[in-house]
């Protein structure tokens, strides 16, 4: 990758939505919208809600399905000129394994296993909260995939370090964290929950301190690369994640706030490396 900045899954479509603003070629990578075996319409009702310096979402993995991705979006993403990451979600073990097998048929750089989506009724995050289940699914997907496997962890696990270790032992080539934090909003006037699913996923700067702490804990507990995310909105935030031990960083909801945020983060990282006379930004990895 030409730099460590990746567009986070679900916040950058399939990589072409922001082309009017900047050339995605400058990015280190793009992670696709979360894919499921079959096409999914996602959740009904309100799907996004602003919170203090953040947002809740309950999109529910609306996507065209793995098959369509392999024959369409994956080909488009390959043209982006940066690392292509396919983010795969699922409702059951078979979903994940079959999905991973089908993704062997396309040219991607990394398979990101999303065992951390809080917005689907069955499966999703359930696989990421328990170390045994996380290990089980990781090893089964690892056994079939031909792509490097990065497992995306949820902050809603009781012990994220235990889940991280379990995934490493089960054969994960890398980890990404964190997915959204389970939250809630109530429409006080209507006296009911804002989201049909009641709970939804919180992201944005509001969750950054939690994400940073978890990346720090996990990066110190495993020896595979960690991709850090959660609330990153400036180059300084990205540097903090690298200092905490992240090899790459992902930017999610901040892109909604400012379409040029990733461009500025990449520029800021280059300027920082130059100012500190670093040959490589990785030289500061894990120094805290």
């Amino acid at each position: 990758m030409k730099n460590p900045v990746i567009a986070a899954s679900g916040t950058f479509g399939f990589g072409i939505e922001y082309e009017e603003y900047f050339d995605p070629t400058i990015l280190g990578g793009v992670s696709s919208k979360g894919l499921t075996l079959r096409p999914s319409r996602g959740n009904a009702g309100i799907r996004v809600w602003e919170t203090p310096m953040g947002m809740l979402n309950s999109i529910g993995l609306e996507n065209p399905g793995v098959e369509h991705f392999v024959s369409h979006e994956a080909l488009e993403m390959r043209k982006l000129g940066c690392a292509v990451i396919a983010n795969l979600g699922g409702h059951s073990e078979e979903d994940y394994v079959t999905g991973a097998e089908m993704l062997n048929g396309c040219d991607i750089d990394i398979l990101e296993l999303n065992i951390s989506c809080p917005n689907v009724k069955s499966g999703g995050m359930a696989f990421g909260t328990d170390p045994d289940q996380a290990a089980d699914i990781t090893s089964k997907v690892k056994a079939v995939t031909r792509h490097p496997l990065m497992v995306k962890l949820t902050p809603n696990a009781g012990d994220i370090v235990a889940v991280a270790r379990a995934c490493e032992e089960a054969g994960a080539d890398g980890l990404s964290l964190i997915n959204t934090v389970l939250g809630m909003a109530i429409d006080v006037r209507a006296e009911k929950a804002v989201f049909n699913n009641v709970y939804a996923g919180l992201s944005g700067p509001a969750i950054m301190p939690i994400a940073l702490r978890m990346v720090h804990q996990v990066a110190h507990a495993v020896s595979i690369p960690v991709s850090g995310l959660g609330g990153i909105s400036t180059a300084e935030d990205a540097i903090a994640f690298i200092m905490a031990g992240a090899s790459t960083v992902q930017v999610g909801a901040t892109t909604f706030r400012d379409p040029m945020a990733m461009v500025n983060i990449i520029k800021g990282l280059e300027e920082y490396a130059e100012k500190k006379s670093l040959k490589n930004i990785q030289d500061i990895r894990g120094i805290v």
Binding site: G10, T11, F12, E17, G42, I46, R47, V48, E62, F256
Partner: peptide
């Protein structure tokens, strides 16, 4: 309701005769 306004987040989708 929108988050990105760009077509990236899928926060604003509606059902139509031609799908979402």
């Amino acid at each position: 309701r929108m988050a990105c306004g760009m077509g990236a987040c899928l926060g604003c989708t509606i059902d139509t005769t031609k799908g979402s």
